[in-house]
Structure formats: structure tokens, C-alpha cells
């Protein structure tokens, strides 16, 4: 059987979740491997969320936020950016490949970019295989 990865996507309420919503309204096709979790801001994704997701069966984690400078809370996504460098480095310490984490900026109108980013992630994780395997 083909490997169907499970990917947790943390979306911020103001931009990327709206983009995911728009993708649905537009009936755009994207892989069913993503589980979207809506948060108020990408800056509130504590690295522990990411590690917990991976250690409890997710094969990849994405954090999607507003474009830099467009954060509803002014600098939330800059925090997410600062942390993402650290998360990528630390993934290897905890025994995961760096590719299992992806950070992207998607505005509320970019439904096509949402589909593109998510499909790209699913393809990469499919090649990589299950986490912890």
C-alpha cells in the first residue's frame, strides 16, 4: 500500500486559514493528507506543539502565517520566523529530518499558493517516508 502521510498544518486565523477556506469555496483540489489546526497567530506555535505532533504520529508539520509585515498582531510572524530556524536545527537533535517542518506565508487571497505549498509538502513527505521509521 502506498504511504499516506499525515501532515499537521497550523494556520493563522487571519490569513492562511482564510486562504484554506477560500481554496475550499473555490473547489480547488489538494491532497487529503493535511489536518488543519486553526490558531490566532503563527507566532503562538510553541516548538513543543511541533515536536509533540511529530512524536505522536504526524509525518510532517507546517506553520502557515501572514506575509511578513502583514501580521494582524504586528510581529507574530517574525517570532514564528525566528523560531522556525531553531526548530529546523533542533529537529535533527530529536531524530527527525529537517524537511518534516515547513514554514510559509500565505495571504487570505492566495488559495492557489495554499494548494501549491500543501501539495509540495505532501509530495516531499511521501518521498521521505514515515517519521520515526
Amino acid at each position: 500500500m502506498d504511504f499516506e502521510p499525515k501532515i499537521i498544518v497550523f494556520c493563522c486565523n487571519w490569513c492562511s486559514y482564510a486562504a484554506a477556506d477560500l481554496a475550499g469555496i473555490n473547489r480547488m483540489q489538494y491532497p487529503h493528507n493535511v489536518w488543519i489546526i486553526r490558531l490566532m497567530c503563527s507566532g503562538m506555535v510553541h516548538p513543543e506543539f511541533i515536536m509533540d505532533a511529530l512524536s505522536q504520529g504526524a509525518d510532517g508539520v507546517m506553520v502557515l502565517g501572514c506575509h511578513l509585515g502583514e501580521c494582524h498582531y504586528r510581529d507574530g510572524n517574525y517570532r514564528a520566523l525566528d523560531r522556525s530556524d531553531m526548530v529546523v536545527e533542533l529537529l535533527e537533535d530529536f531524530g527527525y529530518e529537517q524537511e518534516r517542518f515547513h514554514l510559509a506565508w500565505i495571504s487570505s487571497q492566495e488559495a492557489d499558493k495554499f494548494v501549491e505549498v500543501v501539495s509540495g509538502m505532501v509530495n516531499r513527505i511521501k518521498k521521505l517516508g514515515p517519521a520515526g521509521g
Binding site: P47, E48, M51, D82, R83, M86, E89, L90
Partner: peptide, 25 residues
């Protein structure tokens, strides 16, 4: 809790270069 993750998160969110930590594991 995870001391490594929390410490690194604390450093990164407060503008301290986490790469300057030697042997962070």
C-alpha cells in the same frame, strides 16, 4: 517539559543567537 526545546525557544524568542550554544544536546 523538554528542557532543550524550552531553553532554545526562550533564547530564540528573546533575540539571543541560539547557534552560539555549544553542544546544545
Amino acid at each position: 517539559g523538554n528542557q532543550l526545546l524550552d531553553m532554545m525557544n526562550g533564547l530564540a524568542s528573546n533575540g539571543i543567537d541560539f547557534k552560539s550554544v555549544v553542544d546544545r544536546r
